[in-house]
Design a protein around this nucleic acid. Structure first.
Length: 202
DNA sequence: CAAACGATTTTCT
DNA sequence: GAAAATCGTTTGG
């Protein structure tokens, strides 16, 4: 439908892309099950110069390989041996930039999402965090490196407008180890949205 | 080859 | 509020 084209992702301004992603729909169709949600929180990881980025100093390993490819694909990795975090690769090939999607507001397949999360009431813990949204949408590391043009994962523009004044920028979560780069205002979220993550240290 | 650790979330005290 | 859960990736010997 209105799936965002590769050209949306290959641009160099990761901050602009991070802000524009707010209000877009993240859609997955996995094993015949369609689920989706509106992106309400993102975090930019700005390439070789960003201490918080897995590709800091161009660290190119089997895990980070997708980040060195052309934008428009997924970079997914396992964190704490438990959760799969979903990132959107941006910029051109050999420029390892990526955006972590930290929270979504559920839209389609909410029943499926609740089943995957083993929950029986709809509340922010369903998909209001980077680990939980991946679980709710069925995203795992096996999709790392896959295209965001489908068939499994895509991002759509559904004409949802987010006013500039409703986009808050703040410091990123869980990156204290990045020293001075931990202070960069690279986290973006929609003001007053109840699905924005409420992890520790916020 | 062994060991430490993490862009988190849940559970227990 | 503190600590556990849990494992692939990375780093060190």
């Amino acid at each position: 439908m209105n799936t965002l084209p590769v050209s949306f992702y290959t641009r160099k301004d990761i901050i602009a892309i991070s802000r524009e992603l707010l209000g877009k729909a993240l859609v997955t169709e996995i094993e015949g099950q369609k689920t989706s949600g509106i992106i309400v929180e993102t975090e930019a990881y700005a390439g070789p110069a960003d201490r918080a980025c897995h590709a800091y100093q161009r660290r190119h390993t089997a895990r980070t390989a997708p980040m060195f490819r052309e934008g428009g694909i997924a970079y997914i990795y396992l964190i704490y041996g438990i959760y799969h975090l979903f990132n959107i690769v941006t910029n051109e090939a050999d420029e390892p930039f990526a955006i972590l999607v930290r929270a979504i507001e559920p839209v389609e397949g909410i029943d499926i999402m609740m089943h995957r999360r083993k929950m029986n009431v709809v509340k922010p813990q369903l998909c209001g965090g980077p680990g939980t949204l991946s679980m709710a949408l069925g995203i795992t590391t096996r999709f790392s490196g896959e295209s965001l043009q489908g068939p499994h994962i895509r991002i759509e523009d559904r004409d949802i407008r987010v006013a500039k004044k409703d986009i808050i920028s703040a410091t990123r979560v869980g990156v204290a180890y990045a020293q001075e780069d931990a202070l960069l205002p690279y986290r973006f979220y929609i003001r007053d949205n109840p699905w924005v993550s409420k992890a520790k240290g916020l």
